[in-house]
Nucleic acid binder design. Structure first.
Lengths: 350, 350
DNA sequence: TATTAGCACTCCCGGGGCTACAGTGCTAAC
DNA sequence: GTTAGCACTGTAGCCCCGGGAGTGCTAATA
């Protein structure tokens, strides 16, 4: 059943009750009964009436009762409906904003910024925060430098537009003199600075084709070295994680086996990166509730993500938080959103 | 009461029973009673006799009974006595050795070696493995390189004897021309290569004193830059941790609060580094049982460490494992020992 | 003197039964 | 459409009880 049909079946009053129920459950963590809901709802309706409504909501698959004489708790679809139609986002308070701004201002080093963003997320939400390390695909070459290490080994230093410095050691196979390297270096700096590392590779292959005709030794050497460097560019991405121990505080996750599985999955990284990659394409905040992520260790977790931009305004990566499905979406969604904006700004202002 | 006095009080037969009891407890994880001990001990003595012995051991503070009608479990002092006098170290089997050797051979990159050593430790012991990142104090300068980033910012690249490359960005304050930097770089490479980073700093300060009289511009610039670089050398050390989730499997650590505290302490790093620093001085394997570490989150853990050497045969760092006090010391101690040796070898053979 | 058998005692653990409680669905009345 | 009333159901906490494991003590034994 699609959300539209649910929307039609469940009328406005029912939706109000759903909202109140979910918010209460998020706050208290215990099944909500008809009597409590009747008190909390604002409308003066008796528990009996509420019971009818709740039966409808249960039929629609939005809430469920853990056992006969407990109240109701939201299902995955219930949460989904809630975040899609019913959330009342609460923007972060001025003190929190200030705290975040301060953490994300001072630094120039992008790695440090990333880490601070991650710990800011975990501190503000009391859950686990994670931030993807920017993909170098989107990064421009600012400077290239060759340092001879031994006869056939050369250290290549790439300074990139995000202020990062990458070191790679390549085996040249043949021997280069000091001046060979300086010339190659000058040639590359003159011709390739300002390009994306991503596209450089293909352009270098093109240029090598041309050179083959002109036969300029310097250019050829330079290109072959550069080709090797970019050939080694097999980084498969990474992310920074903070406050994972916060997750140990939630009793819906306190099953040690589940938790262990979850932590292992953080250490594994691969699957999570895959998940984050999918969020890069999305426009703004993206939410995966429970099994929606399609990633089994996250079955009783929710993941809220937002992409952030680098200094060129291109999407550089994704950040987000992981917590129990029963999290305070009203507050957490704006926090993730704002953090992504602040991080983007901080990366711009360097 | 010192161990010597205990040794005198507790006679050889008692010691045998202590050994059997501890080994049994480590294997089974449950309090050991007189009847079981009588069966396991090899000697044919009745449970009643054993009970007398056990009472003595309890008086000596080596074992304790959780409650009236349970068996006995070792105390901290019991374990201490065991590892000091009673362990029968079991060297790793040939298959395990082979596995370790293979993991620690191929790589040239010392960072990768460190990580492999750590995961080898955690896999072999089924506990958490950790390896200190080598301290750069003990490392020699192999090459220094300056790359101008902007008018007043210079990227300094230090290639060190362990094959690591360090990048540092310094604010020069005043402006340097390209050729200034090249000259400075040449001067430094000519005069300081092969020195310890640690001692370089003091020598540079001495040399600056001399220069002030001779007034050579190049030398002065070079020294002031180098002084700045080494001034920023405020790295406070770090370590790599693997398999921390293994610790979630032990039920003596399964108290979520304790465990959380322990994990937080791993993330904190500072205190643990302090602890590891103390192990650098020790000759060989070092063992902290329970509260012996003096670090409260480790109260129900044991830490087994061993120092490893860099390519010059100097102590570069420490590695080890963390697990519950009830760990298989017989096996784990040799594993830590061997891993340290293998890592030292691997670092030498590059 | 060292060892052992016997015995009374203590404590933990698990199951069964009981009660109090919370919340439900249904029915009938408003 | 809403509500009151009621019978029903599952849970959580509690006490109680018996079985089991292991002890310490004492007295007997080699």
């Amino acid at each position: 059943m699609s959300n539209e049909s649910i929307e039609n079946i469940v009328n406005e009053r029912s939706q109000h009750f759903l909202k109140v129920l979910i918010e209460r459950y998020i706050r208290e963590g215990q099944p909500v009964g008809s009597r409590t809901l009747s008190r909390d709802s604002g409308l003066s309706l008796s528990p009996a009436t509420i019971r009818n409504v709740m039966a409808d909501l249960e039929d629609a698959g939005l809430i469920i009762s853990p056992h006969t004489s407990a109240g109701r708790v939201p299902t995955i679809s219930g949460y989904r409906f809630f975040v899609d139609y019913l959330v009342s986002l609460i923007p972060p308070g001025e003190t929190e904003l200030e705290q975040m701004r301060q953490q994300l201002m001072g630094d120039v080093d992008s790695k440090a910024l990333i880490e601070k963003a991650s710990s800011a997320l975990s501190e503000l939400t009391h859950m686990a925060g994670l931030v993807m390390i920017p993909r170098h695909d989107y990064v421009l070459l600012k400077q290239i430098e060759f340092v001879p290490l031994s006869d056939t080994r050369v250290l290549v230093i790439l300074v990139t537009s995000d202020g990062e410095v990458q070191n790679r050691v390549i085996e040249t196979g043949r021997q280069f003199t000091q001046s060979d390297l300086v010339q190659a270096q000058n040639f590359l700096n003159a011709n390739y600075v300002g390009q994306k590392l991503e596209t450089m590779r293909t352009r270098i292959i093109e240029d090598m084709e041309k050179t083959r005709r002109q036969m300029d030794a310097v250019m050829e050497q330079a290109l072959s070295l550069a080709g090797q460097v970019l050939g080694t560019d097999r980084e498969e991405g990474d992310f920074v994680l903070s406050g994972q121990t916060n997750l140990m505080g939630f009793n819906e996750l306190s099953d040690l086996e589940r938790l262990r599985h979850l932590f292992d999955s953080f250490a594994e990284k691969r699957q999570i990166l895959h998940l984050l990659d999918r969020c890069m394409e999305a426009e703004g905040v993206q939410i995966f509730i429970g099994e929606e992520s399609g990633y089994e260790p996250f079955d009783s977790c929710s993941l809220i993500t937002a992409p952030y931009q680098n200094d060129d305004g291109e999407v550089a990566g994704v950040l987000g938080v992981v917590g129990p499905t029963r999290m305070d979406y009203n507050k957490v969604i704006p926090i993730v959103d704002v953090t992504a904006r602040l991080l983007s700004n901080a990366l711009k202002q360097r």
